[in-house]
Amino acid sequence: MSPLPAKTPDGPPPPPVVQRVRVCYAKRGRLRFTSHRDIQRAFERALRRAAVPMAYSAGFTPHPKISWAGAAPTGTASEAEYVELGLSERVEPERLRGSLDEALPPDLDILAVDESEGGSLADYLEASVWRIELPEVDPAHARAAAAAFLAAEQVDVQRLTKNGMRTFDARAAVAELVALDDLPSVCAILRVVVRHTTPAVRPDDVLTGLGAVADLVPPVPPRVTRLAQGPLTLLLSADPEVVPTAPERGASPASGPTAVDSGVEVPQPGK
């Protein structure tokens, strides 16, 4: 049902944006099965429950000012998802972090809220660090596969997209690929740094590539977690065999990359 055409609705324009905040959140556990659309809806409702003073767009169907950055695929967990909010009143970031976290379901957890210093979130988030657990895969096999993948010029993979089956190179976007060492032989763990490119190369594309170059085919579904996002230089480890430490959060108030312990602990069965 639409009203008669009119350029603008009656009444005053909505209040302007007075503050932008960058929110870093995690999707964990069971909630890694949420799709991006699901998370968007959950956020919009949580913002209302938490009474966050959102700025709205003008027009007949006002929308809250929320900018999303590339979301982790359905089925993958993340410790570093980002969203930017436009607010109509100033808020204290830490207070917003607490109230929004409270309003979101458990396992959608707000890790940090920082005032944005301008610039595009998408430009800032150049690359991601992914951790890929491959239960029942021999770490030696994974190491060999990683080496073969890195040695290749180009690794073409196929994925079914909305526009049908697409073929693209998964190699160029991979800035770093390491099989973590010193693991019991029941599980291989890969750490991969992937540039945000178009078309996007996802962790499952890298896995498909590993299958193509070295017959690495996980017998059970891998568990994938995004560990960090940010400028590529901050994400590359100096010594690829060593997990990089997280940059000090204070050093980069405008949402420094959130790296978490990408640990080498053995995954708990059934966790």
Partner: peptide, 21 residues
């Protein structure tokens, strides 16, 4: 524990995980 490994390969897995507000 038996269900979780099945979820990556089904449509809209979120419908099976519960945890609704």
């Amino acid at each position: 524990p038996d269900l979780e490994p099945l979820l990556p390969s089904v449509k809209k897995p979120i419908q099976y995980v519960g945890g609704e507000l």
